[in-house]
Design a binder for these strands. Structure first.
Lengths: 105, 105
DNA sequence: TTAACATATAAACGTCTATATATATAATTA
DNA sequence: TAATTATATATATAGACGTTTATATGTTAA
């Protein structure tokens, strides 16, 4: 642990960040963060088109951020690792902090 | 703290993630994470063109990830918040974990 | 002011990406 | 088998993004 700045894998970080850099993809990811859900359920809950959800799920899967499980005609997706949530919460907090600190410039 | 998944600001998160989603930008950010550096020094250390560095610094500044300070003809840039490093380390670790867990599928 | 240096900006280009529309595959049920 | 539901894929398009080249702005020193 305790890696130094010059020892980080920028390639890997950029790859993950890219996958987290779309708002719809984030909403989908958060949507399946607590329990696995079928594609159609995600479509319902988020109000996005089915092909769009399917496309983004493919990206999330490619980045290993969600795992897939088929059951009959349904395909269930679920967030692979809860540490993702910690990172997202960290980004959320950072964003707020940067904005509030900005006022004191 | 301890925000729940449905209480996160996806807009803000996506905005920050987008800024972290480019490898050159990450290298620049890490380059100025320990001390403030002039543009020309960053150019030297990273071996990228000056307009390219300048462009990415502008993006980093827009996202409030770096702060700027002018001294004579030099413009110094420095990472605004050390928490950024924690997040990057988290992404780095997550990337490695996702890859190693993948083998056990 | 002129020269030299540091940095920023602008335009142009190719590439990537998000999205929509349309269609196809796959599984279930009647 | 046909019909229905669930999901994936294919194609097209518009916009965003990273990079390069060329040029401009700004600062210092002679």
């Amino acid at each position: 642990m305790n890696k130094r700045a010059d020892n980080l894998n920028t390639h890997s970080i950029a790859f993950l960040a890219k996958c987290l850099a779309d708002e719809n993809r984030l909403r989908i990811l958060l949507c399946v963060s607590k329990e696995k859900k079928s594609v159609s359920r995600i479509v319902e809950e988020l109000g996005l088109s089915q092909p769009l959800i399917s496309h983004h799920l493919k990206e999330l899967k490619r980045a290993l951020l969600v795992k897939v499980e088929r059951s009959g005609p349904f395909v269930y997706h679920e967030m692979t690792d809860q540490r993702i949530l910690i990172i997202l919460a960290g980004l959320d907090e950072l964003g707020a902090a940067l904005l509030s600190d900005r006022i004191t410039f």
